[in-house]
Design a binder for these strands. Structure first.
Lengths: 257, 257
DNA sequence: CCCAATTTGTTCGTATGTATC
DNA sequence: AGATACATACGAACAAATTGG
């Protein structure tokens, strides 16, 4: 029995989709990487014996997936393009537009991932990296006075986690941490949760992160894991009070954090 | 200062992209859900004052993202469509085609997520669900004789985890567990890692999963977490011996598991 | 079973915009 | 500035698919 591609015979692929798939596997088989220029429109028209419109739609499909980019003018054309994190985030975000994630859901993942991330980074960071973490922390070292400052502190605290993720050698970990933080920001911003003064969250958050940086510097993986685990548990608990269903929008193709 | 969309002024959106974005936010603002029919091509042509080809490219962009589907004939048209898990998996998989994930990377995530999943399911499953888990388990209760059987057992063991994820109320958890299992299957299948007889992995895996089901039935969250944690650690250790860089293909738009 | 209506799908010719030399 | 090479956009015609009479 073959690996069995589970496409029902009823949803046949349109010609542009066929062409897009063909180009995909063509690029893959030749091992072409980012920057590689694909044949021009007219060449593709000749190669696939299809009309311009059909070829163009195929290119658009690949472009929407972030796999190619096209430029006009001489030396222009269609180029293989590395899918950006922003694009991947937006595309995955579309999926969760229809699933209704709660703050609980997101924190269950963060609760599992972040301590593991912290543990894996203990003793691995350079002085410059540790300094960068402390730098972000100082953005919210003082109690917020206005709602605007409150919001900025909230964003900064999420940036702390994003920065930590950036330091991981694990691309999957990096993406997931940043994605979950993004989703959380979407909720809190869209629901104005940050507007509710939550001094306890930010102040205890500051304390935890300070201790975390210390543990990371000492190379104490167990402590780092424990600290971030408690931090997550606490943040989760505080946010739980204002739990809400995520009515997230279609994400535009740009970075939130 | 506005939320600041970080699009450089140099990569202006093409007209089809503009139209696609306009339709997106249009759907969003009206709160239209899956099944809602969008205006016909000709209506969109009139509304946006653009050529048919341009409108069609916009539709294709949305279709590539899995947000709409179009049907021909009377009563046909373009319909809002819930992004499928398969589509989301494929789109996210494209991102990691360019990042080079290792087995280590994937197991770091599974190691963090799966025990948490197990703990959250303890005492929450119906008899039918527990029976379904045992059912999948029996698929590899006997030692494999041929390489083909070996492969089937491997797939079945990944299915066990997928089924477990399916029982979570957390859509994000469900997706991530299945996604990571998918990525792992991609590696092991494409690199033929399953071909190497690895009796220890499957037999100990069987033992672990049997104990896990028991703990889930008893409602012992701590034990469930511990068992799956050890199982992951063990599976990771065994796979580490044959570690390899993931040279994953562009994922076709279909389900692997 | 065929025919007609409706809607997306595809083709071709032409013209325009844009970046490079 | 002008020529060149490429994607981009337009419009009209035709093809295919689906539904209902």
């Amino acid at each position: 029995m073959p690996p069995a591609t589970t496409r029902s015979p009823h949803d046949r692929l349109s010609r542009p989709q066929q062409v897009a798939e063909a180009i995909k596997s063509w690029v893959m088989q030749n091992g072409w990487g980012p920057g590689k220029r694909l044949p021009s429109e007219s060449e593709l028209i000749a190669r696939f014996s299809m009309a311009k419109g059909t070829i163009r739609e195929a290119i658009r499909i690949l472009e929407a997936q972030g796999l190619v980019k096209s430029r006009t003018g001489p030396g222009g054309g269609v180029f293989v393009h590395q899918v950006s994190e922003a694009r991947a985030t937006a595309l995955l975000g579309n999926y969760f537009y229809f699933e209704h994630l709660t703050i609980d859901d997101i924190y269950q993942i963060r609760q599992a991932l972040e301590p593991e991330l912290a543990a894996s980074l203990a003793g691995q960071l350079s002085d410059a990296q540790l300094a960068a973490l402390e730098d972000v922390m100082t953005c919210y070292s003082e109690a917020a006075r206005t709602a605007e400052e409150e919001r900025e502190q909230h964003v900064a605290s999420l940036r702390f986690h994003a920065l930590l993720a950036e330091m991981s050698g694990n691309a999957l970990m990096r993406f997931l941490i940043r994605f979950t933080a993004n989703m959380l920001a979407e909720i809190t911003v869209s629901r104005r949760l940050y507007a509710q003064p939550n001094r306890e969250l930010w102040s205890t958050g500051l304390d935890y992160q300070s201790r975390l940086i210390d543990a990371l510097r000492r190379g104490d993986a167990v402590a780092a894991r424990q600290i971030l685990s408690e931090h997550m548990k606490n943040a989760h608990r505080l946010m739980l009070l204002q739990e809400t269903v995520l009515t997230q929008r279609f994400l535009p193709e740009n970075e939130i954090i």
